[in-house]
Structure formats: C-alpha cells, structure tokens
C-alpha cells in the first residue's frame, strides 16, 4: 500500500464535490460533474456582468510554500495577459471542450470524487472577467 500521508489537506470549496448542484444563469440545475463547456458559455452570455475568457496554461510549477500547492501561470484573454495563481494541486479547472482538470487528478478524484484529467501546458481553461472592465 502507498505510504499514508499525515498532512491534512486544506479544505476545497464544497461545490467541487461530486453531486454538488450548480445553478446555471438560466436557472437550470446541473450536477458539477455533468457541466459542459456550453453551460459556461451560455451562462456568461446571459450574464450582464461576467464574460468568459480563454486562459491558456503556460507553465505549471510546484509551490515553494507547500507541496500541496502548485503555481499555474496562465495567458489570459486576447491580450495574453500573464496571470499566476497558487492553488491546491487538486483544485479543478474547466478545460474548454474537455472538462475538469487539475495538477493532480488522482488527488482530485480521491478527495472530491470528481472525474478529472491532468492539467497540462497548452490546455485552454475557462476563466471569468468583468464585461465592463475598463
């Protein structure tokens, strides 16, 4: 058996747990594991404040802070702005046309039961910005 970890995982948001009920912008309810790319796109189209941006994964590194964290660098939107986020390795991102992906999908599946693939450089994730950001 694999060695047991004594590190307590930091809490992830509850809505990523398999079976969580998500409300789309048109009021429709779906389970988190059933969400499709179109659900996010259509919800953003309805939204008056939010718009979807494409965020391409440029780099994935281990965090200096903790082995439980990773630093993911994205190139965001048409201006390809560089944004880095430090997240738990099991934190899921939604990849266009693919679905939930994380730096450590085994851990995501173990902790959340959320079906998940490996987040890789070049993946295009769904992210949000404000529509009227000036």
């Amino acid at each position: 058996p694999p060695p047991s970890s004594t590190v307590a995982p930091p809490a992830l948001p509850p809505y990523f747990i398999k079976g969580s009920i998500i409300q789309l912008a048109d009021g429709e309810l779906k389970r988190v594991e059933d969400l499709k790319t179109e659900d996010f796109i259509q919800s953003a189209e309805i939204s008056s404040e939010l718009k979807i941006d494409s965020s391409t994964v440029e780099r994935i590194e281990g965090s200096h802070t903790s082995p439980n964290f990773a630093v993911v660098q994205f190139s965001v939107g048409e201006h390809r702005a560089q944004v880095s986020v430090e997240v738990l390795v099991e934190y899921p991102f939604f990849v266009f046309g693919q679905g939930w992906s994380s730096c450590c999908p085994d851990r995501t599946t173990q902790l959340l039961e959320l079906p998940c693939t490996k987040l890789s450089v070049g993946d295009v994730c769904i992210s949000l910005t404000l529509k009227n950001l000036k």
């Binding site: 948001p13 409300q23 201006h79 991102f93 949000l128 404000l130």
Partner: peptide, 25 residues
C-alpha cells in the same frame, strides 16, 4: 419515510476562477 433534505445550490460562476488581467485603457 425519508424527509427531503435541503441541498445547497451553488451559482455557476463560483466554479470558474476569476483571472482578471490588469487592463490599461
């Protein structure tokens, strides 16, 4: 009989990271 439980419902945008680049006009 099983009492129906109230299940939390989360808005779709909770699940999407807010990667807002700084923009200059």
């Amino acid at each position: 009989n099983v009492e129906p439980r109230s299940v939390p419902v989360f808005p779709w945008h909770s699940l999407v990271p807010f990667l807002a680049p700084t923009q200059s006009d």
